[in-house]
Amino acid sequence: MPPISWFEVHSENFFTTSNYDHYVLEIITTHYPVSFHSVGLSLGSADCLDSNHLRKLKELINRYKPVLISEHLAWSAVEGVFLHDLLPLPYCSDSLQLFCDKVQRVQDYLGQRILIENPALYVKFPESTIPEYDFLNQLVEKTDCGILLDLSNLYISSYNLSFAAEKYLAQINTDAIYEIHLAGFSQSAKGLLIDSHNGTVAEAVLVLFKYFIKNYGVRPVIFEQDQDIPALQELIDQTEKVNDVIKEYVA
């Protein structure tokens, strides 16, 4: 029973019928609040929503009562083929309408709000006519969804595409941000930052986290690591480092 405020799990990992997986999740949800972070709804795809996937998600939600539910501003399936990655979409009026429709249908089916996470970006489409922060703002306005702000992704995107993360934060609807993600990243041979989730939070991201708290207040925070996973105590140490940043600005 480590001194952790809450946990987050990938929903799809528990679509399994494995008794052991659910045994573990039941223990965790008995003692801690838990949020469900999905990676497979493919909300940005032109494909129809996967009704079987949605059904399994709702069954899981009804069973474990997560405090938050989230997905990604991305797509991962086309013509029934699942590509096992969170792929970017052009930020234009057509994709905004498609994404709004998908989010609204998911929320109607689940009977509750979901949060949408900003992705880590490596390319910019020439078809994009809407800044990402405005795309998310309009999504919130049209569907009443929330935002999961991944500050590591924001830093990665700002570095790769050469824009100021602070200006992004000044434009996004911070009142709609209900959760923050922090994670480690790596750098490719060509110099791109990669959202690899395989290490501690970079100092530059912690600086951005401090900036957010100072200007916009505290939100529930999750430290993500899903590759090269160390001993539990190292993960706990990382969360304590994040908590120290919060305590620095909050009495």
Rank of each mutant, 00 (worst) to 15 (best):
F15Q: 12
T17D: 15
S18G: 14
H22K: 13
T30A: 15
Y32K: 10
P33N: 11
V34M: 11
H37Y: 09
S42K: 08
A46T: 13
A46S: 13
D47T: 04
L49G: 08
D50S: 07
L54H: 08
L54S: 09
K56I: 01
L60H: 12
L60Y: 10
I61H: 03
I61S: 04
V67M: 10
E71Y: 09
L73C: 13
A74L: 02
S76I: 05
S76W: 08
V78I: 14
E79Y: 14
V81H: 08
F82V: 13
H84G: 07
H84C: 05
L86K: 07
P88L: 03
S93I: 06
S95H: 13
L98F: 00
L98W: 04
C100A: 13
C100Q: 10
Q104K: 15
R105T: 05
V106I: 09
D108K: 14
L110V: 10
I114F: 07
I116L: 13
P119D: 04
P126R: 05
S128N: 03
T129I: 11
E132M: 12
D134F: 00
L136M: 11
N137G: 03
V140Y: 08
E141D: 13
K142Q: 14
D144E: 13
I147L: 08
L148N: 07
L149C: 06
L151S: 00
S157W: 08
S158G: 03
N160R: 04
N160Q: 02
L161K: 05
S162N: 12
K167L: 12
Y168K: 04
A170W: 00
Q171E: 15
N173R: 12
I177K: 01
E179P: 03
A183M: 07
G184H: 10
F185Q: 05
S186K: 05
K190E: 14
G191E: 07
G191A: 06
N198A: 14
L206V: 09
F209E: 05
K210T: 14
G217W: 06
V218Y: 07
I222H: 02
Q225T: 01
D228W: 00
A231K: 13
L232G: 01
E234H: 09
I236F: 12
D237N: 15
Q238L: 02
K241Y: 03
N243E: 15
D244C: 10
I246H: 07
I246F: 10
A251S: 15
